[in-house]
């Protein structure tokens, strides 16, 4: 078998055809083909191993690692941004709260100030009014006094005149004035 295999390609082909084609040996158990297959397998498999271990796998690994790193980096960046936005939100809220209290304080202060000013104004106005009232009252009193004293004179004159008309006698002015005083008092 090996001899016929050893002859040039034409002879080898004829041999295989005759041998394996029709009812010959079972090709997988044809031991004359083993050496050729083994040599090819060794060359092919070693080539494959070298290609896979030197080029293919490191390349795939680097790409997968790069992707992993990119994903982790992106996640970290996202976390950082989230933290930043959380901090900004917190700062905004504290700022808002302090602004609110400040606004309240300013409002209160303004209200108090305005109240105080209004109170003071009211007081001065009241004082002024009171002073005016007092002055007016005084004037009324003096006017009344004056009027009263005039009334007395007029009353005394009238009483004297009445008495003279009735009696024909001019009454004593002293007696008239005391009588007028008495009646005014009553």
């Amino acid at each position: 078998m090996a001899e016929s295999h050893g002859t040039p390609a034409k002879g080898t082909g004829a041999h295989t055809e005759a041998d394996g084609g029709h009812g010959g040996g079972f090709p997988p158990f044809e031991s004359s083909t083993f050496a050729s297959q083994l040599v090819s397998l060794v060359i092919a498999f070693v080539a494959l191993y070298v290609i896979v271990s030197r080029f293919a796998l490191p390349r795939v690994e680097s790409v997968i690692d790069a992707r992993q790193n990119a994903i982790e980096g992106d996640l970290a960046a996202a976390q950082k941004f989230k933290d930043e936005s959380d901090a900004a939100l917190k700062a905004y809220e504290t700022e808002l709260a302090s602004a609110r209290t400040r606004a309240q304080a300013i409002g209160n202060e303004t209200r108090e100030k305005l109240n105080a000013a209004a109170e003071a104004e009211r007081k001065t106005l009241e004082d002024q009014l009171a002073a005016k009232l007092a002055a007016a009252e005084k004037q009324i009193a003096s006017t009344r006094e004056a009027a009263m004293s005039n009334v007395r004179g007029i009353a005394a004159d009238a009483a004297g005149a009445i008495v003279q008309r009735l009696t024909g006698v001019l009454p004593d002015s002293k007696a008239v004035s005391s009588a007028v005083d008495a009646s005014l008092k009553g």
Binding site: G6, A9, G21, T33
Partner: peptide
């Protein structure tokens, strides 16, 4: 028939064995 080993060309010889580049190769 599909399992036949068909030598395409001969590469060399190791001992008594002829090493051929076959369809399997």
């Amino acid at each position: 028939h599909q399992f036949n080993i068909e030598p395409l060309f001969t590469i060399g010889q190791i001992g008594k064995h002829t090493i051929a580049f076959t369809n399997s190769s």
